[in-house]
């Protein structure tokens, strides 16, 4: 969707008002600059999926479902399972979402969520997918589907929370006689790092945690940083605009602090 004349005009009107508030140290909804909106995560909400979670940040609601299937391993990694993340911007979630194939924004959200989990839990030793080997030429595939139900800003962090919680709740099905027996789970995923994303918007000289839809709309730049329980950075994604070195480093500090806070909702 292109930017309409209305968007351009509204951008300036909204930005001016927000900046006036920021100067007084306030945000539109009364939060401090480093505060999240109310966060909640509920695991196991979809009985038909092997794992699932609904995450809410303010009015933003994202559902993630985890499903296992049988798959053929990639030729170069015959013992490794498959991990795949997909994202749907449901058209009921926002007046700006249209039905149709994935667009650059939904693909980006899927890939950003994928990267954090892949970096921390899929690649390297003792990865979750190394436990997916079943027999020669047969492995488990784990599909995460990100369903954006209500988009009121900061989808990245809500998707990250819901995805990690869905992985934590996922039950690995039994494999017998060449078939998956979904009613007889054999275990859970061996997660270790629990990466969680924190998104920070830069508006003028201000850095704001968990930007609302309005704040994202007028932001000069946004940076999403996934940090792990083990004190590591797992992925980053900056969108539009410029940030200075100091701003990026400041954002990293904030992300570590906020990541620890957010993880409490899923652990």
């Amino acid at each position: 969707m292109g930017e309409s004349a209305k968007d351009v005009v509204m951008h300036d009107i909204k930005k001016g008002v927000l900046l006036d508030l920021f100067k007084k140290g306030e945000r539109m909804d009364g939060r401090g600059f480093e505060d999240y909106r109310p966060v909640s995560v509920k695991k196991g909400v979809i009985a038909t999926a092997e794992g699932s979670a609904l995450a809410k940040i303010g009015k933003t609601q994202i559902l993630v479902g985890a499903k296992f299937d049988l798959a053929t391993p990639f030729a170069d990694r015959p013992k490794e399972g498959v991990f795949s993340v997909n994202c749907e911007f449901l058209p009921l979630a926002s007046p700006t979402f249209e039905p149709g194939p994935p667009n650059e924004n939904s693909i980006q959200l899927a890939r950003v969520t994928d990267r954090a989990i892949r970096s921390a839990e899929v690649e390297g030793d003792n990865s979750i997918t190394s436990t997916f080997f079943l027999e020669e030429g047969k492995v488990l595939a784990l599909y995460l589907d990100i369903y954006v139900l209500d988009h009121s800003g900061n989808m990245t962090d809500a998707a990250s929370l819901a995805a990690m919680a869905a992985l934590m709740s996922a039950k690995i099905p039994k494999y017998a006689d060449g078939k998956l027996v979904r009613t007889e789970p054999i275990g859970v995923l061996p997660l270790k790092h629990f990466p969680i994303a924190t998104t920070i918007a830069k508006i003028d000289k201000y850095l704001l945690v968990d930007p609302s839809k309005e704040e994202s709309f007028v932001a000069d730049s946004t940076l999403s940083i996934a940090t792990t329980q083990t004190g590591l950075l797992a992925s980053m994604q900056k969108t539009k605009g410029a940030m200075s070195r100091d701003e990026v480093l400041q954002a990293v500090d904030i992300a570590f602090k906020k990541g620890d806070e957010l993880r409490k909702y899923i652990l």
Partner: peptide, 13 residues
């Protein structure tokens, strides 16, 4: 809110 300016007037959101 004025969103377009036309020769004969204004488009208003």
């Amino acid at each position: 809110i004025v969103v377009y300016i036309r020769g004969n007037g204004y488009k208003v959101d």
